[in-house]
């Protein structure tokens, strides 16, 4: 019995350890039709190497992207056309930032940092579903960590080796 319990504890510890090592979002859920501050937590580099570049892909349906500058990193925004026009407080928006890059930094493997983007989650996004932000960490000498796996229908992020950070979409807040 004790052995079973300790086994279970070990498994939980392993699972938790794995979860900590992943690049994740601070807030795990957010309502649609509202602005949202997405905080990406990067806990380590690529197999011991420091991280020099962090790239975040902005999923379709997420507009009005404003990344927060970081000292020691240069900011780059890749823009492009959306699949359709989104209504942003009465203004139809057809294009905008599709990828955010923080470059030229040096985040050591044994250090931790956060990268922040403020976005608007359009009401077109499916409530109750997960929204994923694929992230790529680039390190010296071509080393890369890609947190880009999106679970299939029957899977959860826990089944994946390199899950993309995601947040659960909630009903639009009422009242106004």
């Amino acid at each position: 019995m004790l052995k079973k319990l300790s086994m279970a504890a070990a498994l939980v510890a392993l699972g938790a350890g794995a979860a900590i090592a992943h690049t994740t979002l601070e807030a795990q859920e957010a309502p649609v039709g509202a602005s949202h501050k997405a905080v990406f937590r990067v806990p380590h580099g690529c197999d011991g190497k420091p991280t020099n570049v962090v790239r975040v892909q902005i999923p379709e349906g997420v507009i009005a992207v404003k990344p927060m500058p970081k000292s020691g990193w240069s900011l780059e925004k890749v823009t492009g056309a959306y699949a359709k026009a989104y209504d942003y407080h009465g203004t139809p928006t057809k294009e905008g930032v599709k990828e955010v890059l923080w470059k030229g930094g040096n985040l050591a493997d044994d250090e931790y940092d956060e990268f922040v983007v403020r976005v608007y989650l359009t009401p077109d996004l499916p409530v109750g579903k997960m929204l994923y932000f694929p992230i790529v960490q680039e390190c010296p000498a071509g080393a890369v960590e890609r947190w880009i796996e999106i679970p299939a229908e029957a899977q959860s992020s826990d089944d994946l080796e390199f899950p993309a950070p995601g947040l659960k979409l909630l009903e639009k807040a009422g009242g106004h």
Partner: peptide, 10 residues
């Protein structure tokens, strides 16, 4: 199969 920087198929 890494299709693009942000898309992988297993």
């Amino acid at each position: 199969i890494l299709i693009s920087d942000f898309e992988i198929v297993k």
